[in-house]
Structure formats: structure tokens, C-alpha cells
Design a protein around this nucleic acid. Structure first.
Lengths: 109, 109
DNA sequence: ACAATATTCAACCATATGGTTGAATATTGC
DNA sequence: GCAATATTCAACCATATGGTTGAATATTGT
């Protein structure tokens, strides 16, 4: 995870962290509020937030004992730019893709 | 790494694997050919290819003793779709983003 | 001053990841 | 048949990751 893009991709590769971002897209929130809907300890959420913060996807403003966490989408532009390098490739081969995921889902469940 | 999107993001979050995809975007190649420009053992590359294959980003066609690896960009559409959920958020706050990465680069080197 | 609240820090644990080396397997070409 | 080539498999290792619990720190409100 050496470069910025890797950090961002690593951060968003975890479902809980994407869920946290989704929540934060609705507006800033305190750590406890973010953690509430999850089946996770507060500590685990705190760790996830640190990862997101390290990738620049989240911002923290301390207000007394509360830390107000705020979504910062900027770094996602790196992802967008990278993925669009390959946009022209993904027109062909859609049916094969679907077959692939169908197979994988079978073995996974 | 439970869902498809997580698998894809996890796969592309590693710089070597992104480099492999970049190479494959120029055309299919054998494992040895892919490994050649890297400072990595053949086995390491073989593992990376398995991760990419698991995410559906790569396809394998065996031709005798050669495995011809082929780029499949389809799964990147999942990434594109996800990231564009947040496109509207990344207009504001660009300067803060740049400050963030500048700071991080300082402590990293 | 003190109890309650918000958050992090620290230690620990299990599993995943990324790498290595060495052996196994399959195919080619002489 | 046999040596060389292409690739994977298996075991191992170090470190990272995602989670836990328990203690520490800071702030609030009475």
C-alpha cells in the first residue's frame, strides 16, 4: 500500500468501510453514531475510520469530547481516473463476466 | 472480501497487480512474460494472477504448457458504478485533499 | 469534585496477504 | 525416452488486517 491510489483502493475494499462512507455521505456524524447501526464494537469502527482518514476519505473535527467525522470524496477521483483508463475494454465480454460471478457465487455459498 | 465489488477492489489495490493489468491491456501474455519485467519470483506473479482471476479481471486459456492470460475489464464496471455514486461530492475541497497527501508524503519518506 | 459519556490506546488473537524456496506436474522438442 | 521449459502446488515465514477486551484520556454536566 505504498502510493495514494493503493491506499484509497485498500480503504474502500472493505464492505464496512464502504458502508461507513455511505452513511457519511448523508452528513457528518460522531463516531458513536456511525458505529450504532453496525454489529461491531466501537473500537473496530474507530479503526476503520482511521484507515479512511489515512486515505483522505474522511475528515475529523474535534468538538469537545465528540469527534465529528466528515466525508471527503476527493481521493475517489484517483480511483475514477484509474478505472477510466480501462473503460474502453469493458464493452466486450459481458456475458462471460456474468458467468464468472455466477460460478463463484455457487462455490462461495 | 465477501462480495464481488470487494474482491475487485481488493485485487486492484495492489500496485503489482495494477501493473500486471496495465501490461495485459496491451495484449494477452504468458505467465513468464508477465513476470519478466518485475522484481518478483514467478511464483509471486502466479499468485497475483490467481487473485486477479478470482476477481474476474483476468482470463486464462491453456495452450499446451503455456497459460495465456487475457485482460477482462468487465468487473471494473462495478468499481466505476460505485465510485460514481459519490462523483457529486468531490467537486468541493480539492485544496484540502492536496494538503492531505502532501503531509502524508512527508511522513512516509 | 465526580459520575457519565466519547473516544482512543494497548495488548492480544486469528486469519489473510505477499513473499520465498523447493518439489510436483505437464508439455515440448530432439 | 529424456532434457528443457512452463506453470502450479505445498510449506513456510513475516507482516498486515480486522476483530476483541480492558484501561487510559478528555470532556461534559450536575
Amino acid at each position: 500500500m505504498d502510493d495514494d491510489l493503493s491506499a484509497v483502493l485498500g480503504a474502500i475494499s472493505h464492505p464496512s468501510r464502504r458502508a461507513i462512507l455511505q452513511r457519511l455521505a448523508e452528513g457528518p456524524a460522531r463516531v458513536t453514531d456511525i458505529a450504532a447501526p453496525f454489529d461491531l464494537s466501537l473500537n473496530a469502527v474507530s479503526k476503520h475510520l482511521k484507515v479512511l482518514e489515512g486515505a483522505g476519505l474522511v475528515d475529523r473535527e474535534r468538538q469537545g469530547r465528540d469527534h465529528v467525522i466528515r466525508f471527503r470524496a476527493g481521493p475517489l477521483r484517483l480511483v475514477s481516473r484509474w478505472v477510466h483508463l480501462y473503460e474502453k475494454f469493458w464493452t466486450e465480454g459481458l456475458d462471460r463476466l456474468e458467468r464468472h460471478f455466477k460460478e463463484k457465487r455457487k462455490t462461495r455459498s
